[in-house]
Amino acid sequence: MTTQNQKLKMALTSTPMILIYVIAVFCIVVSIRQPAFLSPATAINIGRAGIFTMCFAICEMVVIISGGIDVSFPAVGCVAMYVPLYLNYHGMLPDNVFAFFGLAMFIGLIFGILNGILVSYLKLPPLIATLATSSIASGGLILALGTREFTTLPPSLEALYRVNLVTYTDAATGFTYPLTILFLVPVALCVVMALVMHFTMLGRGLYAIGGDANAARIAGFNVRLLQFFAYIFCGVAAGATAMIYTTLMHSSTTTALMGDEMIIIAACVVGGCRLTGGHGNVGGTILGVLLITLVQTNLNMLGIPTSWQTFAVGLVLLLGAILTSIQAKRQTKLGKI
């Protein structure tokens, strides 16, 4: 029987709480070394830097909860950011924000369907299948359209880029820190997905198939359709996110996002998603993204050269993974009820 005391102890040592402690300690250490850290500018910087990480992490989270994994989204994202600008450059796509985002999402949809077919209909192992999709997407893109780099945005995207939510001006230095309107995209995505995952049969179905696909089939869930949804959602949202990336970074290349899958998966796992499926939620993922973004953007403030950033992210991922294992063991120790 769990007493009130035990419950409190469990809550204080749960994975999200540990993440909050780690984030707090990190912030305190950084702010001791660099008092300038504690300013609205930092918040805006992190908010800016975390936009794509957050969006991609939500995509990946949905797939991981359904019991799969998608490592193709960086390649798919590259196709989705490159093709619209390429077509526009060659005068085949009107200069319209909706056209750009629409096409990007359509491209994501196509690859999502491909992943869905491979995983849910052909029952291929998700990691290997999406790795194959990734190479088809990136190889095929360069094969068909060649490598260029678009560094100037079409006017409509440029206009979007200039819309800011708030702008903070540092009184001492006079630097301005604008926060783009696109920051609302990850916010909206998080809110919507939190609601979908918790309050709809679709969301609960994703948890169910991730927990036990066979039990889900017996209960009457359409397992294939749900898996399909996860990959399609991931593709479509990754396409839109890639277009946000282009808008904010003023850059669209065929390889811009390649290699990002690691950081995204790291954020999800650190945030409590289990690669075996069925576990994880939007709140945890937000914390995971926050921690990873903090580490990425503020490592140099701790006196660690940026060339060690990759290693640091790996270390955070490793510790996060070990933490989940320890938490699981702790729970078994508590015994069955």
Binding site: M262, Q309, T310
Partner: peptide, 8 residues
């Protein structure tokens, strides 16, 4: 994770 660590 190892890939990230060793590459890092």
């Amino acid at each position: 994770c190892g890939l990230q660590l060793y590459t890092g």
